[in-house]
Design a protein around this nucleic acid. Structure first.
Lengths: 219, 219
DNA sequence: CCGCTGTCGACTGTCGCCAGTCCACACCAG
DNA sequence: CTGGTGTGGACTGGCGACAGTCGACAGCGG
C-alpha cells in the first residue's frame, strides 16, 4: 500500500515531501480519478501523521488535482472535455499576454535566445512524460521571460490541471509536443511580431484542447 | 488581542470561519503588511487550535494575502507598484477573454441584462469598502457569465491580491469604481462588439493599475 | 570597549488522540 | 419478502502536547 517511501535525506519539510509524493502519485496514475484519498491510509503509506497529510491534501485541492466529495472526503479530480477546453482557453489568454510582454520587453533578444534553447529540449523521441515536461517547461519559460510574476503564478496554478488533462489523453499527445509547433512562436517573437505570435499560440492551444478533450478513460 | 469572536451559530466548519475571519482582519487593516502572524496568538484570538489556524493561514498564503518569511513564519503580504501593474495586466487578459466568450455566447442577451443589473449596484455614494465590493462583484459576474469555470477560478485566485492592492490605494479609488467606467463595457457587449469591449476593459484596467500602484502607505 | 559564546525564549513542524457524523449492513417486525 | 431500525465501522473535524530550530540577549574574555 506504500505510495513511496519518503527519503528523509533532504532538508525540506515533511509536508513538502508529502505534497510532492502525493502529487507524483496522482499524476503517475497511481490513483485514478474518482479514487478516494483517505487521510489515514495516506498517512500510513507516507509514514507521516494525518495532520501532515491533511495540509498536503488541502494544497492539492487548491491546485485542482483533488476535489471535495461527500462529507469532506477528497477524491482525485478529473476534467470533463468542456473543462479541458476552458482550461486551454484560459491558458491561451495568459500565454498571449506573455508573448506580448516578451515582444515589448527591452530584453526581447535575450528572451528569444532563451526560448530557442528551450525549444531544443523538445525531443521527438523521449517518452510521453518527458515530452510533456519539456513542453510545459517551454511554456513556463515563456511566461517567466515576460517578467510578470503575477502571470507566472497564474499560469502555474493551471499547471496541475493541465498535467492531468494531458496525461489523460497521453495516447495522442505526441503531435502537440512537437518542436515544429513551437518554433513559429519563437520566430514570431524574434521578428517582433506580437500579433503573429499570439495567433500561433492561440492556434496551438486550440489544437491542444481538441486533442486532450477526448475522453480516453471513461473510468 | 481578540480579532473577533467566531460565532458558533452557523453550520460551516471552524476552519472556514477562521479563514474568513483572518481574511477580513487582514483586509480591514487590522494587520498591516509585514506584520507577523503567529499561529499561537491567532489561535488564542480566534478561540481555535493552532492546527486550525495553520490551515487557514496556508490557504491565505496560496491566495497571496500572506507570504512566508524567515523560518516559515508568515507575514501579511503587500504588493509593490510593479506587482500591481502586473496584477492588473493579468486581470485584463482574463477579463478580455471573458468578454469575448460572453459576446460569442448564445446567451449574450441574458448576460448583458445581468451585467446591466450588476452595474446598477455601483452606487456613487457608499463607503470605499462597499464600492470595492460592488466593483469586484461586477467583474466577477462578467467572468461567471462567460460560462468558463476555469476562467472564474483563475480570476478568483487574483481576487485576494486585488483587494489588498485596492485597499492600499483606497484614498484614490473613487473614480475607478464609478458606474460610467463600466457602462461602456456592457454597451459594447450588447452591441456584440467584442473588440470594443476588450479595448474598454484594457483601458479600464490600465487606469486602475496606474491609480492603485501609487504607494500610499510607505509603512 | 568589542567580539565570542552559551543560554533562554519563541515559534513552527509534527504527532497521537478524542469527538462527531454519516454510511452500510445486518436484523427484526409485519 | 419487504421496510424500518439499530448498531458497528470508518472517516473527517478539531485539539493539545512534544520536539527541533533559530534569533536575541546577557555574560565573559580579550
Amino acid at each position: 500500500m506504500s505510495v513511496e517511501s519518503l527519503s528523509a535525506l533532504d532538508r525540506s519539510t515533511l509536508r513538502e515531501r508529502s505534497l510532492e509524493a502525493l502529487r507524483a502519485a496522482i499524476l503517475s496514475g497511481r490513483y485514478r480519478p474518482g479514487d478516494h484519498l483517505g487521510e489515514v491510509e495516506l498517512a500510513g503509506s507516507l509514514g507521516v501523521s494525518r495532520g501532515t497529510v491533511r495540509e498536503a491534501l488541502r494544497h492539492l485541492q487548491q491546485e485542482g488535482l483533488v476535489t471535495a466529495g461527500t462529507r469532506g472526503m477528497l477524491r482525485v479530480n478529473s476534467l470533463t472535455p468542456a473543462e479541458v477546453h476552458e482550461l486551454f482557453r484560459v491558458r491561451a489568454a495568459l500565454e498571449a499576454l506573455a508573448v506580448r510582454e516578451v515582444v515589448a520587453s527591452p530584453r526581447r533578444e535575450a528572451a528569444a535566445a532563451a526560448l530557442r534553447a528551450a525549444v531544443e529540449q523538445l525531443t521527438d523521441e523521449a517518452e510521453p512524460a518527458a515530452r510533456m515536461e519539456a513542453d510545459l517547461a517551454f511554456h513556463l519559460q515563456l511566461c517567466r521571460l515576460s517578467g510578470n510574476s503575477m502571470l507566472v503564478e497564474a499560469w502555474q496554478r493551471l499547471e496541475g490541471r493541465m498535467r492531468v488533462a494531458i496525461l489523460d489523453g497521453a495516447d495522442r499527445q505526441a503531435p502537440m509536443m512537437a518542436r515544429e509547433r513551437h518554433v513559429p512562436i519563437v520566430e514570431a517573437i524574434e521578428r517582433g511580431d506580437a500579433e503573429a505570435a499570439v495567433r500561433v499560440v492561440d492556434a496551438h492551444m486550440s489544437d491542444a484542447a481538441e486533442h486532450f478533450a477526448a475522453p480516453s478513460r471513461p473510468a
